[in-house]
């Protein structure tokens, strides 16, 4: 798989199942993540991402199955496991009555950072996360973006080998999203990262490998590039042109070599034709030739790239992928 796995994997999940009463949140999930990998954990809302991450951190117990982090069993050695993990929970809950410095020192001490390294570590993560100016501010008065950074600083403060980040960019503005992604990429050199999101460009921008979860099941686990190629079978071409009202460009294009289907719809006086073609076909020059023969004005011929989104929708059967539809159970 081209993983950077050396020896023992960082995360080993085997046959993990988690039920809430009768509802199955995670269903027989198995995967491994090697040291140094950056893995995107993808899936529609309610797919079981947060549940899985909470189990990895020992906040929830598994109904059945085993989880090992850096060789420690989550169930038998929860404290040992947590020492290796820096966890950023969803929505980033922090003690809003504390000051940033005070909170980071508290968390560092709680996570066993020795007193002599305290100042150095807190200053280092503040620098890393862009918090140097807000050390004296009370967390409850910070903006969402800053809260997220404090949460990230907290996750980093004890220099964990593994970072588990649950929706690290949710609720941020575009600039902050870019900054957070850059920060995560810069962390990749020294940490193994598991990052959940339902925003696809995020995964394409940051991760080298993707796990796709749907209704508690693992539906794909592969590198970002290979997943994109999964759908390389079908070639999609879109053409926009102007024809006489009675003419139907769809039927004219449908007979071209390699074209399976062609459907036309109207956009004002322009028509947009969508073609699905055989693998490896490229009907673009034929489209131009036909348009010239008929005397049609052609303004665009475009071959679509395979996007991860298509793969995602195909794999998760498009169900429940719109945001905020099935709120993930946030029990604690």
């Amino acid at each position: 798989m081209g993983d950077v796995t050396t020896g023992q994997p960082m995360i080993r999940v085997s046959h993990l199942t988690r039920r809430y009463g009768r509802a199955v949140a995670v269903d027989d999930l198995s995967f491994e993540i090697g040291r140094g990998e950056i893995v995107g954990f993808l899936g529609p809302n309610g797919a079981g991402k947060t549940t899985t991450m909470r189990i990895l951190c020992g906040f929830l117990a598994a109904t059945s199955g085993d989880v090992e982090i850096a060789g420690h069993d989550v169930h038998r050695d929860p404290i040992g496991v947590r020492r290796h993990i820096g966890y950023l929970p969803e929505r980033c809950p922090l003690y809003s009555d504390m000051r940033v410095d005070e909170f980071l020192r508290f968390r560092a001490a709680l996570k066993g950072v020795p007193a002599r390294q305290m100042r150095e570590r807190v200053e280092a993560v503040k620098e890393q996360c862009g918090l140097t100016d807000v050390g004296r501010r009370i967390i409850g008065q910070l903006s969402k973006g800053y809260c997220q950074r404090v949460g990230l600083a907290d996750a980093l403060v004890h220099e964990p080998e593994l970072l588990i980040l649950d929706e690290p960019t949710i609720g941020l503005d575009p600039t902050q999203i870019r900054q957070t992604r850059d920060l995560i990429r810069s962390l990749a050199a020294r940490h193994t990262i598991l990052l959940s999101t339902h925003i696809l460009p995020e995964v394409e921008a940051v991760c080298r490998r993707v796990l796709i979860l749907d209704r508690g099941r693992l539906v794909a686990s592969d590198s970002t590039d290979r997943l994109r190629q999964l759908r390389r079978g079908i070639v999609r071409v879109t053409a926009e042109l102007k024809t006489a009202p009675h003419e139907d460009p769809g039927t004219a294009f449908a007979v071209l070599p390699g074209v399976r289907t062609a459907t036309a719809d109207k956009d004002g006086e322009w028509r947009r034709v969508r073609l699905e073609c055989e693998p490896g076909a490229d009907p673009r020059s034929d489209i131009f030739r036909v348009a010239v023969e008929h005397g049609w004005t052609l303004r665009e011929v475009r071959m679509e790239e395979n996007r991860l989104e298509d793969v995602f929708i195909a794999l998760t059967s498009g169900g429940g992928s719109s945001a905020g539809e099935t709120p993930e159970r946030s029990d604690s």
Partner: peptide
């Protein structure tokens, strides 16, 4: 702590 969610942050730190 449970209502505000900070319990999750607290209980994922290495404490019993």
């Amino acid at each position: 702590e449970r209502r505000s969610g900070t319990f999750e942050m607290l209980m994922t730190a290495p404490v019993r």
